[in-house]
Nucleic acid binder design. Structure first.
Lengths: 248, 248
DNA sequence: CGCAGAATTGATACATCTCAAGCTGGGTGG
DNA sequence: CCACCCAGCTTGAGATGTATCAATTCTGCG
């Protein structure tokens, strides 16, 4: 059962922190008002399950604050994370009645939910929501393909460095900065969640984190706070083509 | 330079073999006529490169016949396939000037290309193309996530069985049949391409193919023709949840 | 016929997994 | 206030699956 605090903040789209990046980014005043009508907020505590794969899902949503994960599980318990949702990311698929993945709150989480039926109607009647959703889905597809390269071909060390640089970049972009030089951020994931992201065991994640620390690529303060003295070095360790991925 | 046979077949959308599945599936007569105006066909021989990652790309396209692959390559030569495009699948991203992946013809290939600029205009002016593209992109994202589970958590044997069952299913669906009982099909990929798909080496692919043959899960006629006596057994070997994935 | 690309098979190396034992830090109850 | 506890994490030793390197063996084709 979701912990259903009605948030006082953010009831008005105009002052919403993800107003300019989420699925509603392109909406005009009229469309926004229609969305206001069908939206409601939900909060989850870190660790709570938002929805189980296969469950009926009669809403779609945007992440407002916090981080959620999408995971797939095999019958024997092997788990693979297939999505990492940051503020402004979209959850759910219009036209699909049930959830295809487990959705979990990795940190405390606030989502802006839209009742699915009216949301679908809005999509067919006005263009801006569908346009923006297409754009976001194409971006996610690109991210998924980058992730496939990571899973299929990178070494454990490269995988860790890749994940850290991805989080650093997205964290910087949420703060409207760009990731260069010295960078610091909090890991929103446990070692086990990192392992599920990377297709590794948590022991291997731990060992490689220690190795990167030993080699001076990263510094640790507690388990969660990461300091990166030279972001370019981290990117190099990730094995990515040097450019910051400016293909748009 | 693409081998640019103008195809005699298929100049008319009405008789196009992918008319009801491709990005144009929802178009009305008027929209279809606009598409006719900006489309042209291109043919490629098996092995030819359609476009290199980073190259300027001033068209988007649908695969009409044959199979194309999307691959990413790291600086040191490690390769990962990130897309397998069958007839009706879409190539290219509206709004992006350059190709993000290498696109290669795995078999002889015919593509229906649309000049990008007018295609983008058509997308903003009429709803049906954008709607269908969104739907197709969401499907691809689901496929990519399934693929991520494969890359991150499956054993070599499970990977091979998964790939074979995916190809068997898509092959059956193109023939408007469903994959059950005894099934047979041609592999459109070399061992090396299979390895690039699965995040393995070609030697491991070869060994696991031999193992599946030895165990009677598959039969081989030549290198490319696969016979599956019991499709359910193959799916079991793939480690997937038993159901045929009917989440829509 | 014989060649070249594709595939198979073998022997060995090595990265990561597995199993197992401690460590650490923050919260709780005596 | 301290001892304890527990989840999360680290580290170690050994097992194992896949990669690597190296021959052969197919197979289709000029």
């Amino acid at each position: 059962m979701p912990h259903q605090d009605l948030q006082l903040l953010g009831h008005d789209c105009g002052s919403c922190p993800i107003r300019h990046r989420a699925v509603c980014a392109r909406c005009d005043a009229d469309e926004l008002q229609q969305l206001e009508h069908i939206k409601y907020y939900r909060s989850y505590q870190a660790g709570q399950t938002v929805i189980w794969s296969g469950d009926r899902m009669d809403f779609v949503a945007s992440v407002v604050t916090g981080i959620a994960t999408l995971t797939q599980t095999m019958e024997d318990g092997r788990r693979q994370m297939v999505g990492l949702l940051l503020p402004s990311d979209f959850v759910g698929r219009p036209g699909r009645p049930a959830a295809a993945y487990d959705v979990t709150a990795a940190t405390d989480l606030v989502m802006c939910c839209f009742r699915k039926k009216p949301f679908e109607e809005l999509m067919t009647k006005t263009p801006h929501v569908a346009q923006r959703l297409l754009e976001m889905t194409l971006d996610e597809l690109d991210a998924a393909r980058e992730w496939m390269l990571l899973l299929g071909r990178k070494t454990a060390r490269e995988k860790i460095a890749s994940l850290l640089s991805i989080i650093a970049r997205r964290d910087a972009s949420l703060k409207l900065k760009s990731a260069t030089g010295a960078v610091a951020f909090d890991l929103p994931l446990t070692r086990e969640e990192m392992a599920d992201y990377l297709g590794l065991t948590l022991e291997t994640v731990s060992r490689q984190m220690s190795a990167l620390k030993r080699d001076g690529v990263i510094g640790l303060e507690g388990k969660r706070h990461i300091m990166v003295p030279d972001f370019d070095l981290l990117v190099e360790e990730a094995g990515d083509d040097s450019d910051g991925g400016f293909l748009v």
